[in-house]
Simulated assay, not measured.
Amino acid sequence: MSTQISSQIMQQQQINKSIIRDFYRRAVAQGDIAFAEQVIADNYIQHSPGLKPGKAGVLEALHLMKQMPKPPATSTPFMRLIAEGDYVVTNLCFNWGGIQKVVVDIFRFEHGKVAEHWDAVEDQPATTLNGNAMMDGPIPVDDLALTTSNKAIARDAYQQIYIDRQRHRLPDFVLPDFIQHKPDIADGRAGLSDYLSQNSSSLSINRILLIVAEGDFVVIQSEGIANGKPAQFYEIFRLSESKLAEQWSVNRLTQ
């Protein structure tokens, strides 16, 4: 790939990030429906449960949100933005009615507009095994030159450890001081090992659906079974020293 093409791709990724950032700020927070109409494609595909299909479903939801009284903000919204190719992933949290909501959104762009969307939402529990919030930690993307290699490492790690559950491979892929934000997993490589050994009956991951990587962050969307029901899993990993260093996770049932 030529330097000029690579520069154009990176520039478009930053434009896509700006569109999504403005969508949250203007359309969601401020009720700017005209902006939403401008940036959402007419052939928009919606995968969020509870929303009507297509562009009309999003606009209807935004109209309803505009009419609802906004609860007072008790904390500054937290947002991480990760982009690769036609995809932008947001990892954010916000307080709604006294409940901390944790969200992963995946947006696909087509011809400069938002053409498809997936998401998962969970409530922050009162306590976690690791003592960490589901949403905190580093926000800026670093090590852009390592995007391709980090994506390959995360893909292999996810397949062999999270899907195939080859716990003996943990030292090859995971740092000893692995930082965990999934509430039911303890910190460290040992915490992940314990989790994988105890939860095979209640949670199984069948296959990877999508991987989006930028610098030291890699997002993996997968599907499987959680508590006996079909589910999708949205994992965000931060890599350091060519190994998994930190994990965030939000899941949702699909049926």
Rank of each mutant, 00 (worst) to 15 (best):
D164S: 12
P53H: 05
Y44S: 04
F237N: 02
K229G: 04
A157Q: 01
V212E: 11
H63S: 11
G50R: 02
L51R: 08
G224N: 02
T127K: 09
M10R: 11
Y87L: 07
Q247L: 13
G57L: 02
L92V: 03
I236E: 01
N150P: 04
K101S: 07
K52N: 13
I211G: 01
V174P: 06
Y44R: 02
D194W: 08
S201Q: 11
P138Q: 14
N150F: 05
P176H: 13
L92Q: 13
S193Q: 11
N95E: 14
S201L: 12
H63M: 08
Q100P: 00
V141G: 13
Q159A: 12
P125I: 03
V88K: 03
D142G: 00
P183S: 02
G191A: 13
E214N: 09
Q11F: 07
N150I: 03
L51D: 07
L192G: 08
E246K: 06
F178T: 00
P176D: 13
A73K: 14
A73M: 14
P230N: 09
F94N: 12
A152L: 08
N199A: 06
N251T: 13
D164I: 00
S249N: 11
Q38K: 15
G112T: 04
M135W: 04
H47F: 05
Q67I: 09
A83M: 11
P77C: 11
G50S: 03
I208W: 06
P125W: 03
N199H: 10
Q255E: 14
E60G: 04
Q30I: 03
P49M: 05
A231C: 09
I225C: 10
A190I: 15
H63C: 09
K151A: 09
P230V: 11
M134F: 01
I15Q: 15
S48V: 15
S242Y: 00
G131F: 04
S201A: 15
G224F: 01
A157R: 03
A27R: 04
S2E: 10
M1L: 11
P69D: 13
S2I: 01
S6N: 14
I185L: 03
P53T: 05
E122G: 00
W118H: 03
V104H: 12
P183K: 03
R169T: 14
Q180A: 06
F107D: 02
I179R: 14
A133V: 10
Q14Y: 08
F109M: 06
F23T: 01
L81T: 14
I45T: 05
L239A: 05
M68P: 02
Q198L: 14
Q247A: 11
I163H: 04
R155N: 10
N132C: 03
V88A: 01
D136F: 10
D164G: 05
L175V: 15
S48F: 05
P230R: 05
S7T: 09
P72I: 08
A133Y: 15
L196G: 08
I40M: 02
G228C: 06
S149H: 13
E60Q: 09
T90N: 08
S149K: 14
